[in-house]
Simulated scan of single mutants.
Amino acid sequence: MIGEILTAFRRGDVVPYLGPGVTGLAGDAAPPSRPEALVAELVAGATVPHKIRNNLTAAAQYIENFKHRKTLTCLMAKAFGQSCEPTPLHQWLAAQPQTRLIVQAWYDDLLIKAFEGQSDWGVVQGVTQSEHFGDWVNWIRPDGSVAPARAFLRDGSGAKAPAEAPEETFAWRRLIYQPLGSVWPASNFIVSDSDYVEVLTEIDIQTPIPDTVHSIRKGRSFLFLGCRFTNQLERSFARQIMKRSSDAHWAVIEGELTRNEEKFLREQNITRIDANLAEFAASLAQSDLAAVAA
């Protein structure tokens, strides 16, 4: 299937969707690359009731409620703030000029580091209502500065509706979409129960997802890397972000699937590739080099 995927990459028909497992490819120096590892770091820095110590969103909500949002943000920033170099997979993806959109559904900055030195890209990043009330995303330039959105529209109630993308972003040839936020550049994280409730309340009607993402995803196939779909949050975000795209996708998932994962893959017409992620990434890059040499 490598050849089929590479051909789609060269046509610009692939949207890579990177989950926590991609971060783990960086090895021992990597930030937390599983929700279980991340919640362990959070509860090591703040007292959390035993019954929710293994639940990332609930533990984050407890810290936000009883220790303040700033404490949660600081703990998240610490977890993802260590120095770590991008992996060969990040670098390979950053070197694919035909790829218009990459979705990164985790909090590290490894993909951003892989894009350093290029100038024709930008980031659209999910932000929390608790810290950016009325805004769903920030548009971020390669230097980390925020591009101001155009004038807000307002609905009949007077509430803010999604702002239009800044005009300067129309010149970006490549877009990184971080629906959960990121440590870069300003530690914006969607991680607590209330963060997710606010997004999920609107995501069925696509409000939190930028129009630019809607446009680029049309007719394209998603390649899920480092993702599992064992819980409803993971499935909901993937389902809504890939809505109205192509009718054929791939997911690299090694080992046994849960019943919910099997059902999700079947419903979304995602072809499962049962392979080790590191080996798949290496094969992808090697096949690409061989094709170029030929």
Rank of each mutant, 00 (worst) to 15 (best):
A163L: 05
I209N: 02
N260Q: 15
S130F: 08
P16Y: 05
V127K: 02
V123N: 00
L223R: 01
I203C: 03
I241Y: 03
V199G: 00
R10E: 14
A40C: 00
I52Q: 03
A77N: 06
N260I: 12
S246A: 13
G219V: 04
R174N: 08
A44N: 12
L223H: 03
Q125P: 02
A186V: 11
A29N: 10
W136I: 01
W184P: 01
V292H: 10
N231A: 04
E202T: 02
L277Q: 03
P20E: 13
A149S: 15
E164Q: 06
E41G: 15
T99P: 00
I112H: 11
F280W: 07
I209C: 04
T99S: 01
Q104P: 02
I176Q: 09
L284T: 07
G226C: 04
T201H: 01
I63H: 00
Y177E: 15
G117R: 04
I112D: 08
I102M: 09
G156I: 09
W121Y: 12
R239T: 10
N260H: 07
E164Y: 11
R53G: 10
F152Q: 12
L180T: 11
L175G: 10
L277A: 04
R235Y: 00
F9K: 03
G24A: 01
V199D: 06
V197G: 14
F229P: 00
E164L: 14
A8N: 12
S157T: 11
H50S: 07
V127Q: 02
D155G: 15
R239Q: 14
E4F: 00
A46V: 13
Q98S: 07
D211A: 13
A275Q: 03
I2R: 13
E198C: 06
L93I: 07
N231K: 05
L257S: 08
V127P: 00
G81S: 01
W136E: 05
R266C: 13
W139A: 15
G122E: 14
G21A: 07
A165Q: 14
D108Y: 03
V127C: 06
T73N: 11
I253H: 11
S83H: 00
P88N: 09
A105H: 02
V127S: 00
A294T: 11
Q268E: 15
C74R: 08
Y17P: 06
A275L: 03
H68G: 06
D135I: 03
I203S: 03
E198Y: 03
E262D: 09
Q91E: 13
A161F: 07
C74D: 00
Y196L: 12
I241W: 01
S157W: 10
S130H: 10
R220I: 08
V43Q: 09
I270G: 10
G3K: 08
E234L: 12
F170A: 15
S215Q: 12
W92E: 02
A161V: 10
R259A: 04
N55T: 12
A161M: 13
T73E: 11
F80K: 01
E262A: 11
E116M: 09
E256M: 06
I102T: 12
F229V: 04
A58Y: 09
I203H: 01
V103D: 01
K51N: 07
V292I: 10
V123Y: 04
M242G: 02
V146E: 15
R266I: 12
N188K: 11
I270E: 06
S187Y: 15
P31D: 08
